[in-house]
Amino acid sequence: MAIAIDGASPALVGDDATTITTASFTRPAGGLLVAMVAALSGAAPVVSGGGLTWTRRVQRDAEGPWVEIWTAPVTGSGAMTVSLTITDSFGVVAGAIKVDAVTGQHATAPIGNTGNNSSTANTLNVTGYTSSSAGSRGFFVAVEDNSLGAVTVGGGDTGFPFAVTHAFGDMDGIAIRKAANTATAGTAVTFNADAAGSSAAAWTWAALEIKGGSTDASVTAETVAVAAALPDPTVTVSASPSPAAVAA
């Protein structure tokens, strides 16, 4: 089963508040929620919502914005929201969260490889990770902390830029979803984000691979005993005499 993004996935939301909540959306039965997070916070931010079990899968903190990706397997049904909770740091808070509702993920082991780093290049073009399986999908979040302006996505992928104004400037960044599933294992999965202008940037980024559903199956052959009774063979000879006149 191939990974797909459910159309009910909520839009990115950003704010300079200690709690940031998505719009209500309908969770996909048996799916997986992927939350791409950026935050200016005094401590690691926290994702929650829907009564689900959320797990931080990758994190980067370069003495400034936090970038993280969380996941939660979907249980139950109906409408829900997802919240990002940020710790106030000397009166400065800002954050953004983009939640994707994924279907077709691996049933028991959906989490693949991760990557995170920082960069000063104005155009960020990085290998987020090397794919661990065929049919996986990549997710990415990055913050540019020099307040250069709006961030754009490259590489034909799907980007969700954000710009959140806080007490000391702007937090510019982008959440990115690969436009297609990765065809084979062992592929260097790249992400591209371009800061405004051409000045040196201050990027912090994190990436996560979600593995697709497996169709592998094993068959165990067993010998089945069948009871049968065969009759003993018999031979029957039957003939009738036919007298006839013989000429002498």
Results as ranks from 00 to 15, higher is better:
V151D: 08
A163M: 15
P161T: 01
D170E: 14
G159N: 15
I174H: 13
P161W: 03
G154T: 03
T158I: 08
F168D: 04
G159C: 11
F162W: 15
R177H: 04
I174T: 05
T152H: 15
K178L: 06
A180T: 01
G159H: 14
F168M: 02
T165Y: 05
G173P: 10
G173D: 11
V151P: 04
V153H: 09
A163E: 15
V153E: 13
H166A: 00
T158H: 08
V151C: 08
K178Y: 07
T158D: 10
V153A: 08
F160W: 12
I176W: 07
M171R: 03
H166N: 00
G154F: 03
V153R: 11
R177M: 07
V153I: 05
P161E: 06
D172E: 15
I176P: 11
A180L: 01
A167L: 09
M171I: 01
A180K: 01
G159I: 04
A167V: 03
G159W: 09
G159K: 15
T165V: 04
V151H: 06
A175S: 15
D157K: 11
F160E: 12
I176K: 11
F168L: 03
V151K: 06
T152F: 08
A163Y: 09
T165E: 11
T158F: 03
V151N: 08
A179Q: 13
R177S: 04
F162R: 14
F162T: 09
V153G: 11
A163W: 10
T165R: 10
A180V: 00
K178W: 05
T152W: 11
